[in-house]
Amino acid sequence: MKHILTTALLAASLVLSGCGKKNADGSSKKDDSISLQNIGSDTMVNLAQAWAEAYHNVDPKVSVEVSGGGSGIGVAALINGTCDIANSSRKLEKEEEEKATAKYGGKHPTEHHIGYDALAIYVHPSNPITEISIEQLAEIYKEGGKFSKWSDLGVTMPSGQDEIVRASRQNNSGTYHYFREAVVGKKNDFKQGSRDMNGSKEVVDLVGTTPSAIGFSGIGYHTSKVKVVKVSKKTGEPGVEPTIKTTLDKTYPIARPMFMYVPPSAKPEAEKYIAWIVSEPGQKIVIKEGYVPLEAFAPKDK
């Protein structure tokens, strides 16, 4: 009759051991490596991933965990103290800054400007349009905007599909916020019924497969299946192509800086990592990924 007891113990230990054992493994492995939590902006996530990967060769001990989710998530993680580095494609709002400072007992999170992102306007290659103005974009995208057909812009679609298919982003992504601020108008809202894609790449994909579509996404997401349209501030002015040069001299109207925030509680490796990011090798990756580097590292010939 001892069996009952042994089986009881066995059953109980089975339940516990499954988890317990792995716990031990998990903690023992952490002795020799440092992991940095890098959370935030979807715009920057590809770039952050490329840095994380390259940095592994610079300092093999440091492993950077990148998760996207968006600037909002990054800022939230900064305020909650659950990350070492927060990526944000916008500056911290005053309120957020205050919250974060309160969380860390009066110490501010440090802000690092790490490059720029130019928002490109994409259309299908078959679309004859070459230039578009911010005003026109606003009429297309904003609530109550007047343009819903390509013919409203004076464009004749070769496919005969005149209705504009608007590709946008989900309503809390940094890209959406920036586009609203820079194009639609801060006090306005987007016209409902746009295809709100989950990722910058999905926007480009949708535009690439839909002849009558228009979409906005970081210039880093450019592919051969879509065409980038020149953008001007006002209708009639010459359009500007998004390049490193036009972004840096501010002639391209829809570009924004990208930031990384480090909370005071972060591991010292975080600051070292960012120091590497804003140095030559880190900024080379910015260019390679299709973003715009800091002024000091811009290629001279362009």
Binding site: G70, I73, Q170, Q192, G193, S194, D196
Partner: peptide, 26 residues
């Protein structure tokens, strides 16, 4: 994924589940 009351089966729409999945993250 378009917020839209559909008028035909060729309209894009957005569902309750997808809205949570897309927006909760941020």
């Amino acid at each position: 994924h378009a917020v839209n009351v559909p008028h035909s089966i060729f309209d894009s729409v957005r569902t309750l589940t997808a809205t949570i999945a897309a927006e909760l993250g941020e």
